[in-house]
């Protein structure tokens, strides 16, 4: 990889200041995407600002809200008794990301800031209508994911935590790529205080809500209610693993399985 200046941040604000002061600095969270990208020389940041000592990891539950610090690893979320009892679907989702070594380093903040089209966490953030808290403001999950590898984060803005409202019920089912474990298609279904939400990852360039399915499930929350709803293949991802038509079909299958798994 190309060389760079390595800096550590003592807080989110310190990280924001250091990234802003650098030429083309990047934040380093778990590094599970950024470092492989740099190994391939597909990225050439002038500086990496390491967030591991910025005090951003940890899980807390207050009332109906589960707060997960941006630097909390997937493994910590997967094995958290608090998360498992409040939002079991979220713990299960974390337990299926990548592989154990990736889960020991990869973080929720890094995952959603990267917004990979096939990442798991964006589906949970959108499906549960979570709130992303940064060093500057709070951003609604519905407004956060703006396009492929693109988010509402501004330059020098650092995610500090994600707040999830505990839903009535929720489930996430994915059809994983057998090599990378990324979602070829993943569907997060939740029955929340604000209504039924269905978030789809892996299928298109950016995570999205399947509104037709949400309407069908609002009328009747059962797998059978999805028999007649479909997602158009238009604009969906197509690659050697799955065509757009196959992905569209998988959205329906994963959604039905996710609804069936909600209890």
């Amino acid at each position: 990889m190309y060389n760079f200046n390595y800096q550590t941040a003592s807080s989110a604000d310190d990280a924001a200041a250091k990234v802003s002061a650098s030429d083309e600095g990047k934040l380093l969270a778990g590094g599970m995407t950024l470092l492989p990208t740099m190994k391939q020389r597909l990225a050439m940041p002038s500086d990496l600002v390491d967030l591991s000592k910025a005090g951003l990891s940890g899980i807390s539950v207050a009332g109906n809200v589960v707060s997960i610090g941006a630097m909390t690893t997937h493994d910590t979320v997967a094995n958290s008794k608090e998360v498992a009892s409040a939002i079991p679907a979220l713990a299960k989702l974390a337990s299926g990301i990548g592989d154990p070594a990736v889960r020991n380093r990869g973080t929720i903040g890094g995952s959603i800031a990267n917004n990979d089209p096939a990442a798991d966490y964006p589906a949970a953030v959108l499906g549960l209508g979570a709130t992303i808290v940064t060093n500057k403001r709070s951003i609604a999950g519905d407004d956060f994911f703006t396009g492929m590898f693109d988010t509402a984060l501004e330059d020098g803005e650092v995610i500090t935590r994600v707040d999830f409202q505990v839903p009535e019920t929720a489930s996430y089912i994915k059809f994983p790529n057998p090599a990378s474990r990324y979602a070829i298609v993943g569907v997060f279904v939740a029955k929340t205080a604000g209504g039924v939400r269905v978030a789809v990852t892996g299928a298109s360039p950016c995570v999205f809500r399947a509104s037709e399915m949400e309407a069908a499930l609002t009328a009747n929350f059962s797998a059978g209610a999805l028999e007649n709803s479909s997602v158009s293949a238009n604009g969906l991802n197509a690659d050697i693993h799955a065509s757009a038509e196959y992905r569209a079909h998988l959205v329906g299958v994963m959604a039905k399985r996710a609804v069936a798994a909600c209890s």
């Binding site: 390595y6 590094g31 599970m32 470092l35 492989p36 190994k39 990496l48 493994d75 592989d99 154990p100 070594a101 990736v102 020991n104 380093r105 090599a179 990378s180």
Partner: peptide, 21 residues
Amino acid sequence: SQCGACVIHINGEAVKSCTML
């Protein structure tokens, strides 16, 4: 970062040493 031949333990946890500085 896929093959896992480089897995070591850091503070007791398995990590891929090729995907860490």
